[in-house]
Amino acid sequence: MSLGRLIERLAQLVPVLLGVSAIVFLMMALTPGDPVEIMLGDQHVTEEQERALRHDMGLDLPPHERFVKFLANAAQGNFGQSFFHRQPVMDVIASRLPATIELSLVALVLALATAIPLGVLAAVKKDSWLDRAATVTSLFGVSLPGFWFGILLLMLFAVHLQVLPVAGRAGYESEVAPITHLLLIDTLLRGRLDAFLDALSHIILPAVTLGLPMAAILTRVTRTSMLEVLDQDYVTFARAKGLRRRAVLAKHALKNALIPTVTVAAIETGSLLGGNMVVETVFGWPGLGRLVVESIFVRNYPLVQAAVLIYAITYVMLNFLADVLYTVLNPRVRL
């Protein structure tokens, strides 16, 4: 893809991002209740102090100016104070973000590691028992409610077999000096195998729960695209040339069959964000998703607003990345 087209495609994101911001702003503005009263809670302040606070928060401005101020602040990562934590919203979010990123990445890796071999095998052995098993498994994968599947896993592995921890994230942040803030990587980089294994045992159940629907979708996508590729003339030709079946699959078919898988994986990574809220709640995982759910119940709206905007921007960017990836991997398609 040429640089010009990339810039053009990036420019198309601007109205979408502005629209997304406008909706997040509107959600907040239309919320019943006075934000100042919610923020003050039971505290008694003078009318003067209340006016000053209202002015600081920009609530005395007309709506369009408030929106511009919101955008300007958001661009600088300033979402105000968290009512509940008494510190800047971005600081609270930043402290929870690594746990969510780590969980999503592990879920993504697990999903890809299961879906690609399963999808390829199902296509190669079309209509066999393996193909049927893959189809049934993926159908179950998209139909299982994540929160319930998570609880079943907990009941089996944590409660009955007692081989994995019940909840939370391994608490090595204080012992292992952070490098990436992702515990699995940091513990390895610092040579703490014991801590790595502990971190792994904590993350495995939530990651499996989060990754399952994605694995189900990716298995279907890989199977379908592999079947299409196997029908192509160049694959028949490679086989006719006398190349071994395995070589044809690995060198010719798989490379092209994986294009849709990679693209859908990028899009589905965005949907992991939504799943995070549920899975983090089930497993007591201290990430952003759980923080948002907790914040809703204590009406910590600035935090909810900031998190929703961050989620939406990430989602839009992941979709953009999926488009770019598709074009890069498949030069016949032009954005």
């Binding site: 979408v16 997304v20 939504g274 948002v292 929703v308 989602y315």
Partner: peptide
């Protein structure tokens, strides 16, 4: 189409949760 693009910019569950929170 622009409205559709903007709404597609939100992960579904997060959009619903944010609305219900409000």
């Amino acid at each position: 189409s622009r409205l559709v693009d903007i709404l597609l910019g939100f992960p579904y569950l997060i959009f619903a949760i944010a609305l219900i929170a409000m």
